[in-house]
């Protein structure tokens, strides 16, 4: 990344890619964690139903 004499920022795509990448990773990661927590709770409930008839 460099700054042109007129004060215009040239380049900086690495920061753009990092920002979009972080966004994707955090959102997908959170959705995945929610899904696994929901599944775990469901399994616990089913296991207890089995144990207690």
């Amino acid at each position: 990344m460099r700054v042109a004499p007129e004060g215009v920022i040239i380049g900086g795509w690495s920061f753009v890619v990092a920002a979009y990448g972080v966004t994707a990773v955090v959102l997908v990661g959170y959705a995945w964690s929610l899904r696994s927590r929901l599944n775990r709770t469901q399994q616990r409930m089913q296991a207890r139903e089995r144990d207690h008839g």
Binding site: M1, G7, V8, I9, I10, G11, G12, W13, F15, V16, A19, Y20, T23
Partner: peptide, 12 residues
């Protein structure tokens, strides 16, 4: 105009 491509970060 001034921030160039870096301003694309603002869209997220």
């Amino acid at each position: 105009r001034h921030m160039g491509d870096v301003a694309r970060i603002l869209y997220v």
